[in-house]
């Protein structure tokens, strides 16, 4: 084996090793840091454990929005069949309205309330988060062109 060949083999071996290490890093990082999307019905049916972060989406149930004390807000997210109470301490998006689509990121607490760390609403009146559309479609609550 010429020195050049030997060096090349060493280089390829090092590259493979680095690649394997990188792949392992990526896989573990992905496993622990993926956020699943659940509709309120999913949350009820899958018995999502408390403390596990995920995204929830649906419509803001009419008549459930309570503001205060301070910056705290409570509301319920519904897909027409099930609704999940949400508690949030922060600034609601500009287009947050009752009856409109919403996506929240957070986790369930022991009492079954979704503690949201972030609440996202659609960013214009024409737009609906696609996950919410699907969740509503599954409950037969979505009409095309709505």
């Amino acid at each position: 084996m010429t020195p050049r060949k030997r060096r090349r083999i060493a280089f390829i071996a090092a590259l493979l090793l680095a690649g394997a290490g990188g792949a392992a890093l990526v896989l573990t990082a992905l496993k622990d840091n993926v956020l699943y999307f659940y509709s309120p019905t999913d949350v009820a049916e899958r018995h999502v454990r408390s403390g596990v972060p995920f995204r929830i989406g649906g419509l803001v149930e009419t008549g459930t929005v309570k503001r205060g004390p301070g910056a705290a807000v409570q509301f319920a997210v519904t897909d027409g069949k099930t609704s999940v109470p949400v508690a949030f301490n922060g600034v609601l998006p500009d287009l947050f309205r009752e009856g409109q689509g919403v996506v929240a990121i957070g986790s369930l607490n022991e009492t079954g309330v979704f503690d949201a760390s972030e609440v996202l609403a659609k960013h214009d009146e024409k737009y609906m988060p696609p996950e919410v559309v699907q969740a509503l479609k599954r409950q037969g609550r979505w009409k095309e062109g709505e």
Binding site: G22, L25, V26, T28, A29, L30, D32, N33, V34, L35, Y36, F37, R55, E131, Q134
Partner: peptide, 24 residues
């Protein structure tokens, strides 16, 4: 790409946030 592929093949809807990128 991973969340998009997973969604395209009809799997779970997931999103990958900043913790993943901070780690990798």
């Amino acid at each position: 790409i991973y969340p998009l592929l997973l969604d395209a093949i009809g799997g779970e809807k997931i999103s990958v946030g900043s913790p993943y990128f901070s780690l990798t």
